[in-house]
Design a protein around this nucleic acid. Structure first.
Lengths: 345, 345
DNA sequence: CTGAAAGCGCTAACAG
DNA sequence: CTGTTAGCGCTTTCAG
């Protein structure tokens, strides 16, 4: 069918193994024959068959990327194309390919991981989410299959390679910013508490609040889904309180969008009535009304770094577990405003 | 290393070829031996090596998904995770895997396609964008490699399988809606004119305007990038006209978001001063302020259908080119309002 | 209904 | 520096 290494060998008047060596750019081949072989390859339009090579070397030059199951509405978050872009960029450079999985539910995701691992389809896996007691993580750990997490593992932190931001500190900074500009009643809206990222961001918020001796009633912490309805309930509840917050730390830009919308509906506006801060610096956080004060977590870099780590790890299984913390930067925009006087309690 | 077909064969007391037949569920194998073999597979924890199989059958049970190069900011559009989800869903059912490419620029995208095709990594390719004179399309056509386009090809329409919406009609409907509720000055904001989707949506708009005998000055058509800056210029220009539009047809929800933002900045608001309609019904179009009147193009379905077509085509290369039109539905929300009197000209 | 044997296209010792 | 020879793990005739 297609042109094989043998055809090239024949045409160039060498042995197949020589051709193979030329492909690998083996230094022990004379420049002269290399040239001849390369010419033959070009003339014949030769392209190596990946499957054959993979079979021979027992690897696949591919990495698997696991997204959260699409049952999670979270998948609609532009976070994902953006990490993917980072991963893809590094993968392209190193000539790795990308396998992605979007299972419809957790079960399907797990099946896909199994297929990737057991079938030798990929050399390693990047998990794009991290939540507690994840069977996928357990499976991978047991199999001793190379993987890295974008985010922070909830268990065995020291044995797993991961790339993350300092979400605790970022969240603390954000909260402190609100405090600095005069807010005294600050609430937190996060996603599922199963996700480590939510936990970290919550803890950062909490730490800042406590250090500043501000009130931290239970009602000031809500965990909503990304869905509009969830966000709505959360906001309505929050602003029905005797002492509604004047500042909010929201765990994700997309959620913030929902919050703004709900606020409008109940007759409050941002930043006049309430200051909003959030996370991710998605492209759209610049074009919302108002543009959001948000933490730029450098999604693209998260992707690049995770790919780099994974490939290192796939190449050398003994590579120790490492942790990479990508720096963040707070983008100050118009969703926050300083307040001087506090409503009377 | 891993457990192979031979190990299973030995354990079950049969020949490797028999095991292979069991895997393929060949009807000529007695139920008895099938059971025995399956038990052996289970006991040993056997999983077929995909590479070996692919090599033997010259296929890969994988499909390639090509996104636009990430130079296009468009990639941040939640459209992509959503199609991917559709594709993934069908792929999962049929046990195909997904290879994705996100090249950093057009050149890289092209390289990735070549790698996929030449290296036998995938059985077919889904293109997630369609623009005029695309070298990737040409390459695939020449190679007679199975592929389908999400969107409409700009050339050789009848020879290429694609799945699309009736963007012309959807756009016309949208425009007519604005006309119905009293708008007489309606402008169009689209993306790159290289993209066929932009062209179709523009033509639908144009057709409605012409049929209603409304003004269609050149200044009423602007093509902006998704980037904020681009959108801003467009809007400023539009509303500096002697006769600014009161209604807008915008080719994408994300762009609309930028438009709303810019409007606010120049002191106009939606829908009081201008009515906005757009496309895609991204999740976020519900949670913006105001929620958008937009065309639900059923992104997920576009994904599912494209995967279905591709797989049919990959299985039978003689499958004729087909066209699948996914129905759309206009979601009427709060970004439009009817006007009775027209500003004096 | 099942086994033996060849081969998919490539790599990797091992010779020379 | 290069050729020879085995495989990698699976499928698939061809016999039986």
């Amino acid at each position: 069918m297609a042109v094989t290494i043998k055809d090239v060998a024949k045409k160039a008047g060498v042995a197949p193994s020589t051709v193979s060596r030329v492909i690998a750019d083996n230094p022990r081949i004379s420049l002269d024959t290399k040239k001849r072989v390369r010419k033959a390859m070009k003339d014949l339009g030769y392209h190596p068959n990946i499957n054959a090579r993979n079979l021979a070397v027992r690897s696949s030059q591919a990495i698997g990327v696991i997204m959260p199951s699409s049952a999670d509405k979270a998948l609609q978050n532009p976070f994902f194309p953006e990490v993917l872009r980072g991963i893809g960029s590094f993968a392209h450079e190193t000539e790795y390919s990308l396998y992605v999985s979007t299972g419809g539910n957790d079960q399907e995701v797990f099946e896909e991981v199994q297929r990737m691992v057991n079938g030798n389809r990929v050399d390693g896996i990047i998990l794009l989410y991290s939540r507690i007691a994840d069977p996928v993580q357990q499976f991978l750990t047991e199999k001793k299959f190379p993987f890295v997490i974008v985010g922070k593992p909830s268990e065995q932190e020291s044995e797993i390679t991961y790339v993350d931001n300092n979400n605790f500190k970022a969240s603390k900074d954000l909260t402190n910013h609100l405090i600095d500009i005069g807010h005294r009643h600050i609430a937190f809206i996060g996603g599922s508490t199963e996700l480590t990222v939510t936990v970290d961001r919550f803890n950062g918020y909490k730490s800042a609040i406590e250090e500043a001796d501000l009130p931290l009633p239970n009602e000031y912490t809500v965990h909503a889904e990304f869905l509009k309805s969830g966000g709505r309930d959360a906001v309505e509840q929050l602003f029905a309180l005797d002492q509604p917050p004047t500042g909010l730390v929201v765990a994700d830009d997309l959620m913030t969008l929902g919050v703004i919308n709900t606020l409008e509906e109940i007759g409050l506006s941002c930043p006049q009535d309430v200051s909003l801060t959030s996370f991710n610096n998605l492209y759209l956080s610049e074009i919302t009304t108002p543009p959001l004060t948000t933490v730029d977590i450098q999604i693209y870099q998260l992707g690049v770094q995770s790919a780099r780590c994974l490939i290192e790890k796939a190449k050398d299984k003994d590579e120790p577990a490492k942790r990479i913390i990508v720096p963040y930067e707070i983008k100050f925009r118009q969703s926050t405003r300083s307040i001087t006087s506090e409503p009377v309690e």
